[in-house]
Design a protein around this nucleic acid. Sequence first.
DNA 1: CGCCGGATTTAA
DNA 2: TAAATCCGGCGA
Length: 195
Amino acid sequence: MSAAALQGPVARAAQALLGQFLVRDEVILRITEVEAYGGPEDSASHARHGRTPRNAVMWGPAGRAYLYFCYGMHWMLNVVTGPEGSAAAVLIRGAEAVAGLETILARRGATRATPQLCAGPGKVAQALGLDRAFNDHDLRAEGGLILRPGPPPTCLLAGPRLGIAFATLEDQARPWRFADADSRAVTRRTLLQPL
DNA sequence: CGCCGGATTTAA
DNA sequence: TAAATCCGGCGA
């Protein structure tokens, strides 16, 4: 089910990633918030200017990690989806700590676990200790970083994607941000509505 | 909880 | 020059 969903339309693939697990060594995160990004036709996507050295991984097969550096200090984790060549990807925007809390706290520079500990795309990558070395990493292979299926959320929230003021109004309005309605590890909840 | 400014590197 | 952000500080 989850393997097939990664191949379908990116908005559907994004929803299917909610509730799945990101595993790296002893650290396990449960995905709670995501955003779908399409190919060149999506003016909010990194693929909008065609293939570049940075976004090359987006044109590859589904199930690989696309990592990019943002705002001069944060790494962002995406899961490449869709048919190969469609250049679609899903940004992992939020997660809950399931295991490896000590390691997560150390990487995040935090002393206590709060619901917001891994709520935010920069926080997710930091909690997993990811950087450019994981770009193009196969998330379905054992070792390194692994994506594992998990129970889907009972109820979903949806709303416009964040931080894309440069996109067309139509693409800004597209409700391609999704979250687990029962999780507190979600940013800007007030901008989301039941799906 | 929301708004604001500063941090800091890279891509196009 | 702006960017798919985070954090701390401040006010409501």
